[in-house]
Design a protein around this nucleic acid. Structure first.
Lengths: 213, 213
DNA sequence: TAGATTGTTAATCGATTAACAATC
DNA sequence: TAGATTGTTAATCGATTAACAATC
């Protein structure tokens, strides 16, 4: 495991570990107790307790033998790791079904995400409300990004216009694109793209159902 | 790699391979050419051509040296693997923002998913339209599941009612739950749960932005 | 034929698991 | 103290990569 020398005492995590740490974060947000054991985490997430302990050992964090992990402290650690303790202003591009669903979703505040604007280029949508946000034209994009120091955009346009919208976002200073369009985006180096292809989950289900027939 | 003896000549795939095969499927659905090389697939998905060839070699499929893979044939193979060639009737439970977005999404037909009904227990929503579907009360659940031989349900209710809804779905004969609620569901053995936690993607982005600062 | 690309085997790398020591 | 749980090291397992053979 390679170490990432950094001003903080940050370590690099194996990728699977990082994925599981997200699951631990989601799980702990649901817990109301003060302590939790590796065994309990493991049971709920259907993995082994050894793996849980190993994963947590990558964090700058120790548990109490005979008691388990102190949930608030572990949450602090995970929050810091994923930057949940810093709030990012996020914009949504595309006010269709998915875009409005994301703009309305209440669960983001808890993980340090604040949706500050939603955009569309459909005249009929511009000016209408999505929760307490007014749908803005794309001509406002650059101004809003600057004004709210927006680094992240959720891209929720049809796949035909995804690349064009991505280019515009990059030109306007966006650093990361959370891409809900089923399209492969080409972006300059240094720009982060996270593909959120909703069809992947259902493909797993179909594959499993098919296989176990 | 262990072999899965089956009436068909199906093989077991390494889990990471299976995930990448989904990406290949999504990519090929966008291509309009007749052939594609491992090199081109690799470039677009930012992996190595060796890995692409290795992954494809797990399929019952060969490419043409000097030419590449015949896209329609490879698509057939991937469609069969993921059961895309068989259409499944799917119901959506919860007619909030996410539920209606999923019910309206046009991209599912292409992967063998047909949304046949949407349910909610909010009196104000029952009877209203979501695209061409009428929102039905949960009391209709069992009847619809039987009638349309529904095996898969997309669970889009708030996390507080997720477990209750899941219990009802299981009781009504559902075989797989595509869970969009940020909750850990407890289901009997044999019932498949696929968690589609939308917050995971954004956590990756936050983590990367934080780390590269 | 030469060259480009696929296919496969062996070597390497990295992640998981097992065993057990440390600790409260 | 005994027992339960965490933490860590070493062994195992599995996936990726490298090298090269096969093929058109």
């Amino acid at each position: 495991m390679s170490e990432c020398s950094n001003n903080k005492k940050t370590l690099m995590f194996p990728k699977p570990t990082l994925e599981r740490l997200k699951l631990y974060l989601a799980l702990l947000l649901q817990e109301e107790k003060e302590y939790i054991s590796s065994d309990e985490i493991a049971k709920k997430l259907k993995i082994t307790p050894e793996q849980v302990r190993k994963d947590i050992s990558y964090l700058n964090f120790v548990g109490k033998p005979k008691v388990g992990y102190h949930i608030p402290s572990l949450l602090n650690e995970l929050n810091e790791l994923f930057g949940v303790d810093v709030t990012d202003n996020v914009i949504v591009v595309g006010a269709g079904g998915l875009g409005t669903a994301i703009a309305k979703y209440k669960g983001f505040k808890r993980i340090g995400i604040d949706i500050v604007a939603i955009f569309d280029n459909d005249e009929d949508k511009i000016g209408t409300f999505v929760s307490e946000l007014v749908v803005l034209p794309l001509s406002e994009l650059q101004r809003v990004i600057k004004r709210f120091k927006v680094k992240i955009a959720a891209l929720c346009v049809p796949k035909e216009s995804a690349q064009e919208a991505a280019d515009l976002l990059v030109k306007s200073g966006i650093k990361a694109i959370w891409n809900f369009a089923p399209a492969i985006l080409h972006v300059p180096p240094g720009i982060l793209v996270e593909n959120e292809d909703i069809t992947r989950g259902i493909l797993s289900i179909k594959h499993m159902l098919e296989k176990n027939k």
